[in-house]
Amino acid sequence: MKSTTRGTLAVIVTGVAAAVGATATPAAAVGTVPVPVPLEGVSNSLNTEMPKAGLNLPLPTPGAPDGPRYVTGRLLPDRTLPQLPLHGALPGAGLSTPVPHLLGDGFDHVGVDAPASHLRTLAPGLSLDAPLTPPDPDRFGLPDLKLPRAGVLAPALQTVPAADLGLGPGF
């Protein structure tokens, strides 16, 4: 096989692998790990239909904090202790259980689907100011006294949870 043919084949295989890898599941896009609950063994041993369950466990990832900023007229920077952002997801769950027919054979199902949803948080921060002003040229470079300032930057939590309750034929 010629080197140009091998190179072309390598490019095609790489492109196909990238295209397959680009189609990530929604749970992976949110930052969760799907965890199936294996109940097939119980179903086979008891010869009956068992509920189906699956969970999505979150993978929190810390972000870069918005660092301290210099403010004119203050000795200490604003946001002395910056807020740390944390991104992740709320845990998700998918539960489905069989409901037997009263007359005849077969099963219907009742299910709850609560997908993982994005979660953005900010840890509390702290903003301080010293009890001195910057050097004053009118006082020969000496600072004036002032009241100290302290402020707590409030934490934040942002998410939109959702769930779906369904009843349907089959299992």
Rank of each mutant, 00 (worst) to 15 (best):
P85E: 05
P169W: 01
G21R: 11
A93P: 00
A29R: 15
M1A: 12
P62M: 09
G111L: 02
R120D: 14
A93R: 06
G63H: 09
A130R: 03
G111N: 05
A154F: 11
K146R: 15
S96Y: 01
A24G: 11
P131N: 10
L122N: 14
G73E: 09
A19K: 01
V160C: 01
G168I: 05
S117A: 15
V30I: 12
E49H: 07
L75Q: 07
G63C: 04
L142G: 07
G67V: 05
R139P: 00
F140A: 13
T61S: 13
P155Q: 08
T25N: 08
L103P: 00
L9I: 13
A10G: 11
V112H: 04
L55C: 06
D138S: 12
V42G: 10
V11C: 06
L145M: 11
G7M: 09
P58K: 05
D66H: 05
P62Y: 06
A64P: 02
P68I: 00
R79P: 01
D105G: 14
T80C: 00
L9G: 12
T32R: 07
E40T: 15
G63T: 09
N44M: 10
D138E: 10
L119Y: 07
V33I: 15
T5F: 09
A53R: 02
P85G: 06
K2M: 02
L103A: 11
A89K: 03
V112R: 05
A24S: 14
L46S: 13
L57I: 15
P134G: 12
V11D: 00
P135W: 05
P148T: 04
V160P: 01
A93K: 04
V13F: 07
A53C: 01
P36V: 01
A150L: 12
R6Y: 05
P85M: 06
Q158T: 15
G104P: 11
G151C: 00
G73H: 08
D136S: 10
P60W: 04
T48G: 07
L119K: 09
L167Y: 15
Q158W: 12
T133F: 04
V42S: 11
S96E: 09
P135M: 06
G7P: 00
